[in-house]
Write a protein that binds this DNA or RNA. Structure first.
Length: 665
RNA sequence: GCGCCCAUAGCUCAGCUGGAUAGAGCAUCGGACUUCUAAUCCGACGGUCGGAGGUUCGAAUCCUCCUGGGCGUGCCA
């Protein structure tokens, strides 16, 4: 059920019959100007087309246009008589009988009343794409959660969705573990318990590299701080000397510099912490001294791998499956899957051809020893082969695009990737366009950064990114503290055992992180706040999950099953007797609208908003409309139907968000 | 230097691509449980939508400029 397009169809017909029809260049654009009413007192929807048309049509005005339009409109089967308001708004109120019939239909439908799209598209979604062999961290949340939600939502709408996890399985991180294995690894231990051992080797080498880098950076940071402090002192003095408006401005400038000083100090602090951590550990300290040139050595191992060095290739082949096991463990906890996992290494053999092809077309040329594609819109070229002959991720992305065209022939390709890479994708898309590499719509579904409480990108004290797994553990623990509080569990009968408590806190904790992420507009940064995410009240997954649990609980207390309710409605139909019933019913019928809004601009937060509104409408209904004590059987049937539908819609919507429900909590 | 993004209530954030009186949630204050889980519901308080112009019936939304912040920027991904 999609009310706006229903109205749009009717408006389109009516417009074609109006006296001014010939004066409209694009009638469907006007017919589509249907919006949910801004205020319930105006009805359910409003049509805004009379105002622009009134301006367009000679010798007319919006209210006249609206009046003629209403005369031509045939809506009496779905809608009360439309009313003209204000400058020319047409207010539309759906008939109760119409809503009641649609809800009865919805009850008999296993897709919550969502009709599959008429012309399905083939949509390839590239998301998550972590570097394997490297622990997943907080930065991977957004791409994984947003990508998964889009995949599920578009598929549910009826599109053909192909998901592909473009793994970083061929980069420097393998140089790191190969180096680690050769110098610090015990082949026997690696064979017996590869996953933790490889992770350990990665950490050792990473720490040593960080140590040397930090030592190099300390003087730089110190100089930077000194410079900024001088500027700050000068700015402060200026601010004190100035008066009035000028003083305020200067104070602000001084504050801004103070922030920069603090930021530079934080960098220095974290570099010192990195150094101290190694210094404090005699074994690591000794290793650091013995491997002074580790940064370059790691790059050498990577180069050897790319040059098909037999030893490194063998190690890569040995390690890769275990690295995949490790990330799959996280995916299974996040309940995320992919149709394909074609990593960078898969495209390695195709890269030479890509470069040759671009050269042949005259698009790529040599510059300072590197092969570059120069594009008019950009100052910097897209480099596709380094002066040392190595390929870059731009090259891989081009090869990937060609492969996807040949293999899948998609209508759309979505890249769910950090906004910081937007320039890369602009270039990639420009080259794809210039070479006619692919005819799909290419979209960079970009997203902002996850920030800590201080408004800076989330990091640990020593400056490393926070591991994804520990974040999940923290969320589950926080959920346990809140949800399994004995004071509230005392109400449940039979009591919750430990196993159920663990299940509930896992689903609530993981759900909290996903919900919080998806509730923000993807393009903006957001501050990560665990206690808010698992909070009992407000716009959280907990609230939505709890609403679902309440629906099951009501059915239990009324001793009915869904099948019983379906049967009762088939016999008696649905009849509203309370405003809260109508409001909830209308809300439930708008599910498809929310899903289409998600597809419109690839924004899952529209679905989160919908879930919250639905849970809220249900809470109000639950507060005002008692089921067990309903005055008549008919009233009870209607209310039971609304409870069943609410449960189904919330469960389905949460499922599309990647969040699981529990029967009680 | 150039490019991209952002600035909305004390805090965290929405605002459906130009519509009616700018909304939630936290926080604060005040109401409502003999009733299916009060993790709820109903009120109150809270705004120069960073600033200045412009476009028009109508601007948080579109254009220009300014201020302040973030990010990116020729051989990482």
């Amino acid at each position: 059920m999609h009310f706006p397009s229903l109205f749009t169809g009717r408006f389109s017909d009516a417009l074609s019959r109006c006296s001014f029809a010939s004066q409209l260049d694009d009638p469907d654009r006007y017919a589509a100007m249907i919006r949910p009413a801004g205020n319930p007192k105006f009805g359910d929807y409003q049509a805004n087309c009379a105002m622009p048309i009134g301006k367009l049509v000679a010798d007319s005005n919006p209210r006249q246009v609206a009046a003629e339009l209403i005369e031509q409109l045939q809506l009496d089967d779905i809608c009360e008589t439309p009313e003209i308001a204000g400058p020319g708004f047409i207010n539309l109120k759906l008939k109760d009988s119409f809503l009641q019939d649609r809800l009865a239909e919805m009850l008999a439908d296993d897709r919550c009343g969502v009709t599959p799209v008429a012309s399905p598209k083939k949509i390839l979604i590239d998301y998550s794409s972590p570097n394997v062999a490297k622990p997943m961290h907080v930065g991977h949340i957004r791409t994984t959660v947003i990508g998964n939600c889009l995949a599920k939502t578009l598929q549910f709408l009826g599109h053909e969705v192909i998901t592909d996890n473009h793994l970083g399985d061929w980069g420097t991180q393998f140089g790191i573990i190969i180096y680690g294995y050769k110098h610090f690894g015990d082949p026997e231990v690696v064979r017996q318990d590869p996953v933790p051992e490889l992770a350990k080797l990665y950490r050792i080498v990473h720490q040593l590299m960080g140590y040397h880098k930090a030592i190099k950076n300390v003087p730089k940071y110190e100089a930077e701080i000194a410079r900024l402090e001088d500027l700050h002192a000068a700015a402060q003095q200026e601010a004190e000397g100035a008066e009035g408006k000028e003083a305020k401005k200067k104070r602000k400038a001084a504050e801004s510099l103070a922030k920069k000083v603090a930021s530079a100090r934080a960098n220095l602090e974290s570099a010192r912490a990195t150094i101290a951590a190694t210094d404090a550990d005699p074994v690591m300290k000794q290793r650091a001294e013995a491997h002074a040139d580790i940064g370059k050595a790691v790059l050498d191992e990577t180069s050897k791998l790319h040059a098909d060095d037999p030893e490194n290739i063998a190690l890569w082949e040995q390690f890769l499956p275990h690295c995949k096991d490790e990330i799959n463990r996280i995916y299974s906890r996040l309940n995320v899957t992919f149709d394909h996992t074609l990593g960078e290494s898969f495209y390695h053999p195709m890269l030479g051809e890509i470069v040759d092809d671009l050269k042949q077309r005259g698009l790529a040329s040599e510059s300072d020893g590197a092969i570059c594609v120069f594009l008019d819109q950009f100052d910097a070229p897209m480099i596709i082969q380094k002066s040392d002959g190595a390929y870059l991720y731009a090259t891989t992305d081009l090869a990937t695009l060609r492969y996807r065209q040949e293999t899948f022939n998609p209508d759309e390709v979505l890249y769910v990737v950090d906004a910081r890479q937007s320039e890369h994708f602009e270039k990639l898309f420009a080259v794809a366009e210039a070479t006619k590499l692919i005819d799909a719509k290419l979209v960079h579904v970009s997203f902002g950064t996850v920030l800590g409480e201080d408004g800076r990108p989330m990091k640990t004290r020593s400056g490393t990114l926070i591991g994804l797994e520990s974040l999940l553990d923290d969320a589950v623990e926080a959920a346990y503290q809140v949800v399994c509080n004995p004071d509230r569990l005392v109400k449940l009968n039979p009591p919750m055992d430990d196993q159920e408590k663990r299940l509930v806190s896992e689903r609530v904790g993981i759900g909290a992180i996903k919900y919080a992420d998806l509730s923000h507009d993807r393009t903006s940064d957001y501050k990560f706040n665990l206690s808010k995410m698992v909070a009992l009240s407000g716009n959280t997954s907990t609230y939505a999950q709890y609403s679902f649990a309440r629906t099951t609980s009501i059915l239990r207390r009324n001793e009915v099953t869904e099948a019983d309710v379906v049967e009762r409605i088939q016999a008696a139909g649905i009849t509203f007797t309370h405003a809260a019933e109508r409001a909830l019913g209308l809300q439930l019928l708008q599910f498809q609208e929310a899903l289409q809004n998600v597809y419109e601009d690839y924004r899952p937060n529209h679905l989160v908003d919908y879930v919250y509104s639905t849970a809220e409408a249900f809470s109000k209904f639950n507060d005002q409309c008692h089921v067990l004590n309903a005055e008549t059987d008919a009233i009870q049937s209607t209310r039971l139907a609304l409870v069943v539908l609410t449960g189904r819609v919330i469960k389905q919507a949460l499922e599309l968000l990647g969040i699981e429900v529990v029967e009680r909590m």
